[in-house]
Simulated scan of single mutants.
Amino acid sequence: MNVADLQNALDDVFDQALIYHAYTDYMRDYEMIIYVTTDPRSGIAPVYLRYLFRYCVEAHARTAIHPEQWRESLDDRLLADPRTHDLEGYTWGARCQWLYPGAEITPDSTRAKEWTEALGIDFHQVRFGTNDGHNTTLVFSDLQVTELPAGYAPFVVKDDTNAT
């Protein structure tokens, strides 16, 4: 993937809602599920997009929440829907993080260069900043963006209780 195409894909989700991020269940690729909306007057329906960072060799997540706010956000009631309580602190139950200030490609990344040399394919480093939740940095080779069908679940739990 070239840098211009990568930047265009990242620009498309600036200030949108990141609702899930983790390694896939097969543990090679990293996925971000993003809820993309526009002004309702535009008539464009919101969509869920899956950003699949292929060959993700590094993923680092760090809180974007100040320690003082963490201290105020330890109550488990903050895990619930924010409409069900009137507590102070970070409401984990909002279940999304806003991609603001958004994604930034790290030009001349030492880590990406090391992986490019080691594997013989191009790697990129991108930092995702949020206004709350977590900031995430990924080192990966390729990005695939797809619109998700209704009901998509990142992990499928298999029932092996009847296996012989």
Score class of each variant (00 low, 15 high):
D5A: 15
D5F: 05
L6A: 08
L6E: 01
N8A: 15
N8C: 07
L10G: 08
L10Q: 07
D11S: 10
D11R: 10
D12V: 01
F14E: 11
F14N: 12
L18K: 01
H21F: 15
A22Q: 14
Y26E: 14
Y26A: 05
Y26Q: 10
M27H: 09
R28H: 13
R28Q: 13
R28I: 06
E31L: 09
E31P: 11
M32E: 09
I33R: 03
I33Q: 07
I34F: 06
I34W: 03
I34T: 09
V36H: 01
P40D: 02
R41G: 02
S42G: 08
G43F: 01
V47K: 14
L49C: 08
F53P: 01
R54D: 00
Y55W: 10
E58Y: 06
A59Q: 08
H60M: 14
R62C: 09
R62H: 11
R62E: 09
T63F: 08
T63E: 07
T63M: 05
T63G: 14
I65N: 01
P67T: 06
W70P: 02
L74A: 12
L74S: 07
L78N: 08
L79Y: 15
A80Y: 05
D81K: 02
P82A: 09
R83I: 05
T84Q: 15
T84M: 12
D86W: 04
D86T: 13
L87K: 15
Y90A: 03
Y90L: 02
T91A: 15
A94R: 13
Q97D: 15
Q97H: 11
W98R: 15
Y100N: 15
P101I: 04
P101N: 03
A103H: 07
A103C: 14
E104N: 05
T106R: 04
D108H: 10
S109I: 01
T110K: 13
R111M: 11
R111P: 04
A112E: 06
A118L: 14
L119A: 02
G120C: 05
I121T: 13
I121P: 13
D122S: 14
F123E: 00
F123R: 04
H124M: 04
Q125D: 04
R127N: 06
G129P: 00
N131T: 13
D132N: 07
D132V: 00
D132T: 05
G133M: 03
G133W: 06
N135V: 10
T136C: 12
V139D: 11
F140H: 00
F140E: 00
Q144F: 01
T146M: 13
L148E: 01
P149S: 07
P149D: 10
G151Y: 07
G151E: 06
